[in-house]
Computed example of a mutant assay.
Amino acid sequence: MERDLISHLAHGDHPIAAPVSGSGLERLLTRAGLPPRARILDLGCGEGAWLTRALTLYPDATADGVDVSESGLAAAAEEAERRGVADRLRLHRTPAAGHTSAEPYDLVLCVGATHAYGGLAPTLAAVRGHLRPSSGLALVGEGFWERPPTPEQLALLGAEPDEYADLAGTVERMEAAGYAVIHGHTSTLAEWDEYEWSWTGTLSRWALTHPGPDGDAALAAARAHREMWLRGYRGVLGFVTLLLHQTPEPG
């Protein structure tokens, strides 16, 4: 099965697609305090949960969602119709790095999708290029080490020790890239568990009700992911979503 289809199926019961609760998501979006007729961009929008809730909270805002997943964008369009915000949402099937716009945005999101740019630093640089000068905000979700991983855990994750920093170091990396942190949400272990049990369980249930090669592949993916979570990063890898205000560029 294609990776994006596995992801789409696994997120069926948790479309936020990050270890963040619905209430945590809404607090972050509300804290942004966007101006009238705000323009919003989500780089790696997946199934559009963040965008559709933002458009519900800000009824005169418009938004663009960018992703490469056809199934994810189709789900985003359905959710936008269900919430009555489809007329204010534009969806683009293209790599995040390929998105351009003639107008800047008041809020740019990239939550759990920094891999689209090859890491946190290039993501922050790309986000800055989309922001409205002076007033634009970014909402960026990124992993961090809750505690130093063992060599065995790094091997299971396929990660390097410096791939993430600790929480303080993650904040420092964002501020070194030209942002001030103005609010944040640090995911709790309960949020992580809810997300991971949902991811692995929803995919397993689909697999067991769809016998055949696709079902076998989905079940194998669910079990491999659960192994990596329970024996690898549970309690080791954290997740923080930070609301950022750009700072003036030097000179």
Rank of each mutant, 00 (worst) to 15 (best):
F144A: 06
E160D: 14
R128N: 02
P19M: 09
R90A: 11
R93Y: 00
G169S: 07
A86F: 03
A217M: 11
G46I: 05
A18W: 02
L109S: 01
L51D: 05
Y117G: 04
D162Q: 13
H92K: 09
L9W: 05
P104Q: 10
V181P: 09
A80N: 10
A74V: 12
A176H: 06
W192M: 14
G235H: 06
A116S: 11
E79R: 15
R39F: 00
A75W: 07
R83S: 04
G24C: 08
G201P: 08
R90G: 06
L109W: 04
D87T: 07
V108F: 02
Q246H: 06
A38I: 11
P122S: 04
L243V: 03
Q153P: 03
P15C: 06
G141E: 10
W229S: 06
S101E: 11
A102E: 15
R205I: 05
S23C: 10
H8C: 11
E2L: 13
A159F: 12
W192N: 07
H225I: 04
R205D: 15
A80E: 12
L139G: 00
V236M: 10
R173C: 00
R231D: 14
W206S: 11
L107K: 02
L219N: 08
G44S: 06
V108T: 04
A155T: 12
L107T: 00
A18Q: 11
A75T: 03
I182L: 04
A207K: 12
P59W: 06
A76W: 05
V171I: 11
P104L: 04
E160G: 05
A76H: 08
H183E: 15
E142I: 02
L25Y: 00
D166V: 03
G141M: 08
A63H: 07
A38Y: 04
E152P: 01
A63S: 05
G84V: 05
A220V: 10
T186N: 11
L9R: 13
W50H: 14
G24M: 07
D193Q: 14
P248T: 01
V68G: 02
W199E: 13
S134Q: 15
L203N: 02
A159E: 15
E70G: 03
E152D: 14
H99S: 04
D214M: 15
T123I: 01
I16L: 12
G201A: 08
L43M: 09
I40Y: 02
L107A: 00
E249S: 09
H225V: 05
A159G: 03
A121K: 13
H11N: 13
A76Y: 02
G98E: 13
V240R: 05
F144N: 02
G84D: 09
D13G: 05
G141V: 01
D4A: 07
L124M: 08
T62H: 13
G136E: 08
G201C: 09
Y233I: 10
E196C: 01
G212Q: 14
A222N: 11
T241M: 06
A177K: 08
W192I: 00
Y233W: 15
R88W: 00
E163A: 12
A18I: 09
L41F: 03
G235M: 09
F144K: 06
A224K: 14
H8L: 13
P250D: 05
A176G: 04
T241I: 06
L243T: 00
Q153S: 04
A38M: 11
P148V: 11
P15D: 07
W192E: 12
T56L: 15
S71M: 14
T247Y: 07
D214S: 12
L243W: 00
M1L: 15
L91H: 02
L51P: 06
D64E: 12
L107P: 01
